[in-house]
């Protein structure tokens, strides 16, 4: 019977769909319906992928992109969580920064690339800055929200046990706000990846974003698509890894909410 199948028909269809599309594309390219110069056959892209992987050409650009992302993401997240804790705990700090944050936050961060290039040139500093800006705000907003949402009973409990100031923040507020902070970190990771690629496309000398543009400019279309596939896989893996980590660390969050 159908409902006893371990995999549902809907699931099978969902996996089959991209396979069918790839086969159709292969057919279309082979028959000449699609110009090979614009869209190469999937089998050609696969061949290029194998060449990139086997030849060890993956690591330098991937490393460059991940390095930029990691440094910017790490620094911006730490700063955002720090400021978020301050803004969430102190009315005065909140009132001081809130207007500034609300003005800069909605600005699409790629729009900052031209002025940033003006100030910082086209090196890594500029790229990290723009990625950092994209990462900073979602983490900040979620941290503030999470901190403000911490149950006052928890904080008062800690106070009656003699906790104060920094120890309340590190032992109670930060862990209690962590599910919110993680939501911000996950959104920021996606945005960070977008921004690092955009920055590399505009002003890069290495990295995956740069390669994609470079291949297009030099008519190495198959290679361009291969790098696009690599980028897609990278985004997928980063998100998957993050979700795993979040589920591992935040196991108590959904459970306790369900019972409260």
């Amino acid at each position: 019977m159908l409902h006893r199948l371990p995999v549902s028909p809907g699931r099978i269809a969902a996996v089959l769909l991209p396979v069918l599309l790839l086969l159709a594309l292969e057919q279309a390219v082979d028959s000449g319906a699609v110009r090979r110069a614009l869209i190469p056959a999937p089998s050609d892209v696969w061949g290029e992928l194998v060449y990139i992987l086997q030849g060890g050409h993956l690591w330098a650009p991937l490393g460059k992109t991940l390095y930029l992302l990691a440094v910017a993401y790490g620094c911006a997240s730490v700063l955002a969580i720090g400021l978020g804790l301050l803004m969430g705990r102190s009315r005065a700090v909140y009132n001081l920064f809130e207007p500034l944050v609300e003005v800069i936050r909605p600005l699409p961060k790629p729009a900052l690339l031209p002025p940033l290039i003006l100030f910082l040139g086209i090196g890594d500093t500029m790229k990290m800055t723009v990625v950092g800006l994209a990462v900073f705000f979602p983490v900040l907003i979620n941290t503030v929200q999470g901190v403000r949402g911490v149950d006052p009973v928890l904080v008062e409990t800690a106070r009656t046990f003699g906790y104060s100031g920094g120890r309340i923040v590190s032992r109670v507020v930060l862990p209690a706000a962590l599910p919110f902070i993680f939501t911000g970190l996950r959104i920021a990771l996606g945005l960070g990846l977008i921004l690092v690629v955009v920055a590399e496309m505009l002003a890069g000398t290495g990295g995956i974003g740069f390669l994609i543009v470079d291949m297009q400019r030099t008519f190495q279309v198959t290679s361009m698509y291969a790098w696009l596939v690599i980028l897609a896989v990278l985004g997928f893996l980063l998100n998957l890894g993050f979700e795993r980590l979040e589920a591992r660390l935040m196991f108590w969050s959904r459970q306790s909410e369900g019972r409260a």
């Binding site: 009973v153 409990t157 106070r159 109670v172 108590w252 409260a260």
Partner: peptide
């Protein structure tokens, strides 16, 4: 003038005063 040492407060809302993590 603040929670003194030696004093402990047992809250009505125990689900909210325990640390779920």
């Amino acid at each position: 003038d603040g929670p003194p040492g030696g004093l402990v407060y047992l809250f009505q809302q125990y689900t909210r005063s325990l640390l779920p993590w």
